[in-house]
Simulated assay, not measured.
Amino acid sequence: MITLKNVNVNELESAAQSCDFILPIEQTAVWASYQATIEGRKPWGCFIIQQDEKPLAFISLIDFETHGYHYVRSMHGPAWLEHPTQELETQVLQALATQLKQADKNLVFMRVDTWYDNLAVPVLSTVPYNQTVIISLEGGYEEILKRMKTRGRRDVRKAMRECPATCMDETERAYNDFSEYYEVMVDTGKRDGFVPAPLSDYTDMLGALGKDHCRVFAARVDERVVGWSIITMHGPVAVRYYAAMRSDAMHMFVTDRLLYAECCMLYDLGVTHYDLMGIGNDFAPSLKGLNVFKTKFSTEIIPVAAGRDIPLRPVYYKALTTAKKLRKVLKH
C-alpha cells in the first residue's frame, strides 16, 4: 500500500540520510529557502513516499503562482531510492494527485519529473529533457581527460595549448559584485536570441544557496571576463546551472578550457560527478543544438526522469492549454 507521510523539509533530508541516500539539491532545505526568495514562489510541503511503511521516494514541492493561478513544481522529484516500475510510479502519482487535490483546492496541476508518461501530459511551459551528460570526475585530472570522447580530449588539449584565457574559481569575487559577469550573459542573449533574467535572479541565487552550494567559475583574457558558469553543489554532485560566453571569445576555445578547468576545480572540492544538464532528442528537439558540445566530454548519455504536468483541475488545465494554442496561432 502506498502512503504519503507529510514532513517538513528538514525531516525529509534526515529521512533520506537515514537511507544513505543523497537528495538532489532541488529537494533540500537550502533549495526551498532559495525558492522562497523568488516572487510568486513558496515551499508548499514535502512527503516521504512509502510502501508498507518503508520509504520508496522523497518529494519536496514548491508552490508557483503565475497569471492568477497556482501549481506545484518538484524538480528531480520524486527522488526514488530505486528505479520504479511503470505500475509503481503510476500508483505513487495517483496517491500524490489525490493528496494535493484534497489539501489545496487552488492547485491547477502538479509538475513533477516522471520516468513514464502515466497520467502526465507534456508541460504547459518550460523545456524539459529526459537525457543528460554526466562527467565522472573520479581519479583526477588525467582520468577525467581519458574518459572523454576522442574529440573532447583533442579539443581540451588544443584549448590548453592555444587558449589565452585564465580559468579560476571566482566565487568570492562574483558574490561581491556580479555585474561584470552579467554583461557576458547579456551578450550571450543577444547572440543566441533570448532575453536574460534580471541581474537580481543570479545574485539572489548566489546569496540564498551560499558558497557551500553555489560556485562561480570564470575565464578571463587580459583581466576581462569572457566566460563563466554558475554551478550548484550538493554532496558529491555538481550541476552546471548557467553558463555564458562573450561572442568575441568564441573562436578562442574558451568553452573547452573553462569546462575542463571546472572539472578539475570540482574534483579538488570533492565532487565526483558533474552534470551538464539536458541534451536534445525527439523528446526535447529544441535542445539538440547543445549536443555537439556537451556529448564530447563523456561517452555516456544518462536517461533522467522528465518534467511533465499532471492536471489536478482538468477543466481549468484544458482552458490553459487552449489559451496557449491560441496565443501561438495569433503570433503567426
Rank of each mutant, 00 (worst) to 15 (best):
N176H: 10
Y181G: 06
I49W: 00
K146Y: 10
N130A: 12
P303V: 10
N106L: 09
N118A: 10
I38T: 12
P84R: 02
V292F: 05
R111N: 11
F293V: 06
A16N: 01
I38C: 08
G77P: 10
F217K: 04
K5G: 09
P24Q: 01
A284K: 06
K105W: 02
T299G: 06
G207T: 15
I49T: 04
D222Y: 13
H83R: 12
R257K: 15
Q17I: 14
L312S: 02
E183G: 14
M205A: 14
F283H: 06
R161S: 10
L258N: 04
G40I: 13
V156Q: 00
C167W: 01
L312H: 02
G278E: 01
L96W: 04
R154M: 07
L266Y: 04
N176K: 11
P55W: 01
L287A: 09
W115F: 14
R224C: 11
H67M: 10
T126G: 03
L276R: 04
T322M: 00
K288R: 12
R191Y: 06
I25W: 04
D268M: 14
A32R: 06
P43I: 11
E170G: 15
A79L: 03
V9D: 00
A243R: 07
N291D: 06
V225R: 01
T171C: 02
P285V: 05
E89F: 13
R257P: 11
D201S: 15
I310A: 00
V112Q: 00
R215A: 09
D282C: 12
Y242H: 14
V315H: 05
K146W: 03
Y260K: 03
A243V: 15
P311D: 00
E180D: 11
A319I: 13
V133A: 00
G40K: 05
G193L: 08
M277W: 12
T171Q: 00
L266H: 03
G140F: 09
I144Q: 02
D309E: 05
E11P: 11
T98R: 03
W80T: 10
W80L: 02
E39K: 14
A165F: 05
K5M: 07
R246L: 12
N106K: 12
E65I: 15
M252H: 09
W44R: 07
L96R: 06
R313H: 08
L266C: 06
Y34S: 11
Q102N: 13
Q50S: 08
H76K: 13
P285H: 02
P24R: 03
D155G: 13
S125T: 14
P24F: 04
E183N: 13
S200A: 11
R154Q: 04
C167P: 07
W80K: 03
A244K: 08
P164R: 03
G140N: 08
V292R: 08
G140W: 05
L259H: 05
L145N: 10
Y116F: 12
A244F: 10
Y182T: 08
T232S: 13
F253C: 09
V9L: 00
T114V: 15
D212P: 15
M233R: 11
T232K: 07
